[in-house]
Amino acid sequence: MTGIALLGAGIFAREEHLPAIEASPTLTLKAVYSRSQQSAEALAAASKDPSSVAVYFDKPAVEGKTLDDLLQRDDIAAVDIALPILHQPGVVEKALKAGKHVLSEKPVAGDVESAQKLIAWYEGALGGGKPLWGVAENWRYMESIRYAAQRVREIGGELVTFRLVKNGSVRSDNKYFNTEWRKTPQYQGGFLLDGGVHFVAGLRFLLAAAGQDIKQVAGFTALLDEKLIPVDTIHAVALTRDGKPGTIGISFGTEFKSDTEVEIVTTNGVVSWNPTEVKTVARKGDRSDERVEEKKEFPYSSGVTEEVAAFAKAIEAGKIEAIQTPAEALNDLEILQRLLESGAGGATVKSIGV
Rank of each mutant, 00 (worst) to 15 (best):
M1N: 13
I4C: 10
L6K: 02
I11P: 04
A13D: 08
E16G: 08
P19N: 07
A20S: 14
P25W: 12
L29D: 03
S36M: 06
A42H: 11
S47Q: 05
S52M: 08
A54S: 08
V55H: 03
V55N: 02
E63R: 13
K65D: 04
D69H: 03
D74E: 15
V79Q: 05
I81R: 02
P84I: 01
L86N: 06
G90I: 06
E93S: 08
L96V: 11
K97R: 15
K106C: 01
P107L: 05
P107H: 04
V108F: 04
V112Y: 00
I119H: 06
I119M: 11
G124Y: 01
A125G: 08
G134I: 05
A136G: 05
E137N: 15
W139I: 14
M142R: 15
R146T: 09
R146V: 11
A149C: 10
K166S: 07
N167H: 13
G168D: 09
V170M: 02
S172R: 14
Q186W: 03
G196C: 08
I214G: 03
Q216M: 09
E226H: 12
K227R: 15
V237Y: 10
F252P: 02
N268H: 15
N268P: 10
S272I: 14
S272A: 14
T276N: 07
V278D: 01
A282N: 06
R283G: 10
D286H: 11
Y300G: 04
G303I: 03
V304G: 01
E306M: 09
K313E: 13
I315N: 03
I315R: 02
A322P: 15
L330C: 04
L333M: 05
L336E: 02
L340Q: 06
